[in-house]
Simulated assay, not measured.
Amino acid sequence: MYAIGIDGGGTKSKLMIKGREDQAVFSCTTGATNPTAVSLEIITERLSQLFNQTPSSFKEQAVSLCFGMSGFSALSQEDIQTIQVHIKTKLNPEAFVTVTNDAVTALYSGTKGNSGIAVIAGTGSVVYGKDESGNEARAAGWGYMFDHSGSGFGIGKAALKAVMNEADSGMALSPFSEMILQSLSADNPRDIVTCLNHSQDPRHDVASLAPAVFSLYEQGNQAAEQLISQAAEDIYDSIQKVRGRLFTEQKAVTLVCTGSLFQKQQALFDALTRLTDTKGYRLSIPKAEPVEGAVYAAWEAVGERL
């Protein structure tokens, strides 16, 4: 018997298979399956690519599969059913199939199905929690038009706004503004709008400014320090909202920090650690991949825990 997890991302997607002994026996990858980045037709095509790479013996013995998707909220119920039917057709009709938000599998990558709160901070951001009774709550993650505080996009947007404020004040460009403009390949603040209007992926371009902000932070730049501190405070505010709906203030809560910002930028994790210190949180950056969280969720769906 095997369980299968799929982590569906905006750049790549990964499938992993584990038996009850919690050892991966097979894995493979394909392209993006985030519905905000690709069509439903491409999602099903790429799922087929994953299953075509998977040995038949594993597919035949699979009892459960969990597909954790970034961009899950963009799917209609009909879309979800289409994906589930497609998976059963390519896997086996007896397997239990779950399609869910990648925040769920992110949490499970750090708790193996136990209660806690997960923070995903990458291009976007979201906070998700689950208590011992299975009650769920989430905060943030409303999309780049309305939210994404504490994300790569949020930090990049705040950096651009700081540059624009300097320009509007008639001030000479600071080292902070010069580096942000250089990272965007803009000669002056007025070029920001032109660069983004002509970009094929402006959200990505704005989010890609975050590493420059972190680099300035490491150099002791005050403006960058303020942006990173604000990002951590925004994340902490969302965490507290989720905690208030699921846990008492007296209960110690596992806080799983995932996503590219936590994986690559120690400064954000450190800033969040300072905010949560003495507040009853146990912070961790999981060693397990998000796809392993999907495997744990697949086992849990059929009443098993690894």
Rank of each mutant, 00 (worst) to 15 (best):
K287R: 11
L40I: 13
S238G: 07
V38I: 12
K59F: 02
L275D: 01
D277I: 03
T98S: 12
F153H: 08
S174M: 08
K12L: 03
C195K: 15
F176L: 11
W142G: 00
D22F: 03
V38W: 05
W142F: 04
G150N: 12
A167C: 07
W142V: 00
A223I: 15
A106K: 10
T276D: 00
G170E: 02
S109M: 06
M145H: 12
Q200I: 11
R282N: 12
A106R: 09
A186W: 01
C66K: 06
P35V: 04
T89S: 13
R282T: 13
T36L: 08
Y236S: 15
V99K: 04
G156S: 01
S76I: 14
K161Y: 04
R203A: 00
Q61K: 14
A3F: 13
L306K: 08
Q84A: 10
D7R: 06
P93E: 06
A121L: 04
A139N: 05
V253P: 05
A252Q: 12
V104W: 07
T278A: 09
G293F: 09
I6C: 08
T111N: 13
P35S: 04
G220W: 06
G116N: 03
T33E: 07
T276P: 03
R203C: 00
L181A: 02
A232G: 12
S48W: 00
G170N: 04
M179H: 15
P35M: 02
N188D: 15
H148M: 07
S48R: 01
T194A: 09
G113M: 10
E21I: 14
T82W: 05
V127W: 13
M1F: 11
V163Q: 07
T194K: 10
T89G: 14
A288C: 02
K59V: 01
T248M: 05
I4N: 05
L306R: 10
A139C: 06
V126H: 04
S56N: 10
S208G: 02
L47W: 04
V291P: 09
E45Y: 02
A103N: 05
N114M: 05
T33D: 07
V253Y: 03
R243P: 10
P55L: 04
E218S: 14
E300T: 03
K112S: 12
Y128A: 13
T100F: 00
I192S: 07
I117Y: 00
S215K: 13
W142M: 03
S215Q: 14
W299K: 08
A37I: 14
K90N: 13
M1Q: 09
D277L: 09
G141S: 02
S48P: 00
Q53R: 11
L268P: 10
Y236K: 14
A32G: 05
S27I: 07
W142E: 00
K130V: 06
P286N: 08
P35F: 01
F176G: 08
L40T: 06
N197I: 00
V126G: 02
A210W: 02
I120A: 02
A212H: 12
T194R: 09
A271R: 15
R305C: 10
Q219E: 14
G141V: 01
G113L: 08
L107P: 03
L209D: 02
V163H: 10
